[in-house]
Amino acid sequence: MCLAVPGKIIEHSGNIAKVDFGDGTVRNVNTMLVDVKVGDYVLVHAGFAIEKVSREGAEETLKLLKQMLEE
């Protein structure tokens, strides 16, 4: 139930965004819990975007992993 699926915002007005989940599904999602704009990737849970997915964050983890494997 805490499953959250990533998707890309393709339209946004007020608190409603159209989110493309990449497999041909596009759904309306409530964005009241986040600050987002068109083009952002968000995690969607129970019809709500709960957070932005950040590329920098992903890179941080991979950098950390590299460090760990070099130790």
Binding site: L33, E51, K52, V53
Partner: peptide
């Protein structure tokens, strides 16, 4: 899980 989880979480 740094690509999603921030230190302070989702403040809103």
């Amino acid at each position: 899980y740094e690509r999603v989880v921030k230190r302070e979480g989702n403040v809103k």
